[in-house]
Amino acid sequence: MKQPGHPAGPDKRTLRRKFLTARNGLTDDDVRECAAALTARALGLPELARARTVAAYVSVGGEPGTPALLDALRARGVRVLLPALLPDNDLDWGVYAGEGSLSHVRHGARTVLLEPSGARLGPDAVTAADAVLLPGVAVDTRGMRLGRGGGSYDRVLARLERAGVRPALLVLLYDSEVVGHVPGEAHDRPVDAVVTPSGVRRFGGGGT
């Protein structure tokens, strides 16, 4: 269902291609430098400082880097949950136990993800998280997130809502990926904050 007055569908795809193309143009040094800045910013968030369980993900390619953040959270004693993609695009979860606990898993002809190799906890494990790091390619000034298009995290957000839990929703992006408007749909839910290499922006009255 479209929101009145806002374009959807192809416009999301066009925006997604634009940002993914820009990411593909980043050098390894660009990604590494931004990841270091993002990690430092994210570790200063009170939502992560007080979290006992964080649902996150392993970045791939030109995505804003998460591995150092995962290790830093684990070193704090945080239980870090990482997703495993299911055939229907839903997500199962496993505990991150260090870099050696990850496996390369191929999904389809072109997609290879790093997923936890340990025991699977089930899709509902995410409802125990105090904070959820959502992957995305852009976020707008309302906190509306543009995802990768697979719908996996729409399912996660719906699962959290059904469970009646409200973890902090956070997204890590590059500075250029915070934009004026992202096309939205009725089921879309804003994030609480976006972390970029240059700072943190909060939504929903949380300040900047």
Rank of each mutant, 00 (worst) to 15 (best):
L91D: 07
G150W: 04
L26G: 08
L81I: 05
L121C: 12
S152R: 03
Y174D: 00
P83R: 00
L160I: 14
E33Y: 10
T208I: 02
L169W: 04
P64L: 00
L81P: 01
R189E: 12
P123M: 12
G77C: 12
P183Y: 01
V95S: 02
G184Y: 07
V194W: 07
Q3W: 06
G205D: 04
L157G: 04
L169P: 00
G108S: 06
T127E: 11
A128M: 10
R16S: 09
A84M: 10
T21I: 04
E33V: 14
H6M: 09
S101H: 08
L45E: 08
V171L: 04
L133C: 12
G164R: 10
A97H: 09
P83K: 00
L82N: 05
G25Q: 08
L157M: 09
V182T: 06
L113W: 06
P10G: 04
P46Q: 00
R166K: 13
L113G: 02
V60T: 11
V58D: 00
G180H: 03
G143V: 10
A158D: 15
A40D: 11
V60F: 13
D188E: 11
A163Q: 06
H6L: 11
A186T: 15
P10M: 00
L133H: 07
A75G: 09
R162K: 12
A109G: 01
V165F: 13
L172D: 13
A8C: 14
G9L: 12
G5R: 12
L20T: 07
L169H: 02
D154L: 14
L91P: 05
R79K: 14
L169T: 01
E115G: 03
A131D: 04
E33D: 14
D140G: 10
R79T: 15
D124C: 05
H181E: 14
V171G: 00
G118E: 07
P197N: 10
T141L: 15
L73T: 07
P87I: 12
L73D: 03
L173T: 04
L146P: 08
A51I: 14
V194A: 14
E177T: 08
L170M: 11
L113T: 04
A109Q: 06
V195T: 03
V31T: 13
H104T: 05
R189A: 13
L113Q: 07
H187N: 05
G94N: 05
V80T: 09
A22V: 14
R23V: 15
T21M: 02
V78H: 09
Q3R: 15
G62D: 08
A55C: 03
A8R: 01
Q3G: 01
V58A: 03
V78T: 13
V191R: 05
A42R: 05
D124W: 09
A128E: 12
A138N: 08
G150F: 07
P4T: 11
A119W: 08
